[in-house]
Design a protein around this nucleic acid. Structure first.
Lengths: 199, 199
DNA sequence: TCATGTTCTTGACACCGTGTCAAATATTTT
DNA sequence: AAAATATTTGACACGGTGTCAAGAACATGA
């Protein structure tokens, strides 16, 4: 066996970085290969296809992201948790990969827009999976809040609502890029779900 | 002047149909040319580029769509109007072009996902424009409702919230394709904005 | 040490999509 | 009828994805 001349995870990180910044469509395997100091053919050998490479990079991201969201959802009052959750959400698709920042551009895989615009059903599935898991996190938080009397409503419906807003924010971000407006919408959403702040 | 051998508007309709069904990325000018019985080069001559063609087709769609939304927003009680609005929204990105149905696939330009995944800033702008105009329609409806005592809240904030949900629904639709769930979210949103139905 | 097998790498190739261009073509105008 | 003008047509360049065969690097067993 000849050993691989590059690090699998390094490539995944480099690839995701590019996908995030320039979009899946806008990133070619040549770009990634150049950045990673690897031959394009080697990428095909190691990952099979651009899409498969994207999927692996995406799964990696999804894992990190979920952990960060969970952390945001586990501090203080229910209102604080939801605020932190929405803050992180907005920050995330405004800035880049959760851990290391990537300042300028906004990603789009948060939209699940991959499918139809270049990727197939697996990417859609992966995205759906992430959304489901985030929804479960929020619902659990709401349920716990309900037990503590911080919320009286349907946790499942409210969680779904919040997730929907979350995804909508991603779209608006791409359309307008107006962060203050996004934060207003987020605050308004929390008020709607939990009741106005001053009541 | 040699006269054009095809109808400008026919091509626009055919093109949008394909973009809607297969995505912008998934549709080549060859596809459109074949469908329209036109030479590919003629399309470049007439429209300049794939993107320009898309933009024209999109503007056409946006106009029709806005009219349909406005109609939905102008019948009956405020709750009925918003319900009709969300119904049309869901139906729209579930079925196809508003007037003539296109049953199977779901479009994605409703996401403004165009940018980054193949299209540039003009497409983003066009999308942002559509969203703005829809927001204005909803806000006007809410304001009118407020004057009639059917709503007491901030019309601007509520409209923005509804539009955000709307865009989020588009994302969820693409992720899950679960229409009943979408309608539940929509109903829940109306309850949040107007107050629960039975109160 | 050397041969062998396995895996990775490398470069060439086919294919498709976008976009450009010049030559040919069809009308209208003079 | 000739000129002017816009459209059509086919060839071309370019870049991206994906495939393949041949070469290269290592592990193992003799």
């Amino acid at each position: 066996m000849r050993p691989r001349e590059f690090d699998h995870d390094d490539v995944l990180r480099i690839a995701f970085d590019q996908f995030w910044r320039k979009g899946v469509r806008g990133t070619s395997l040549s770009d990634i290969a150049r950045d990673a100091g690897v031959q394009r053919g080697s990428l095909y050998n190691a990952f099979g296809s651009k899409e498969a490479l994207f999927l692996q990079a995406y799964e990696r991201y999804a894992g990190d992201y979920l952990i960060a969201l969970q952390k945001a959802l586990s501090a203080g009052s229910l209102r604080k948790r939801l605020t932190a959750f929405l803050d992180l959400t907005i920050t995330n698709f405004r800035s880049g990969i959760p851990p290391r920042g990537c300042p300028t551009t906004r990603g789009l895989m948060e939209l699940g827009a991959a499918e139809g615009e270049g990727l197939d059903d697996d990417a859609r599935q992966a995205f759906a999976n992430l959304v489901s898991r985030i929804t479960a996190l929020v619902q659990d938080t709401l349920s716990a809040g309900a037990e503590r009397g911080e919320f009286n409503g349907n946790p499942a419906a409210a969680a779904l609502h919040i997730i929907t807003v979350t995804r909508g924010l991603a779209v608006l971000e791409r359309a307008f890029g107006d962060e203050p407006q996004l934060r207003k919408i987020a605050a308004h959403t929390i008020d709607l779900v939990l009741g106005k702040k001053g009541s």
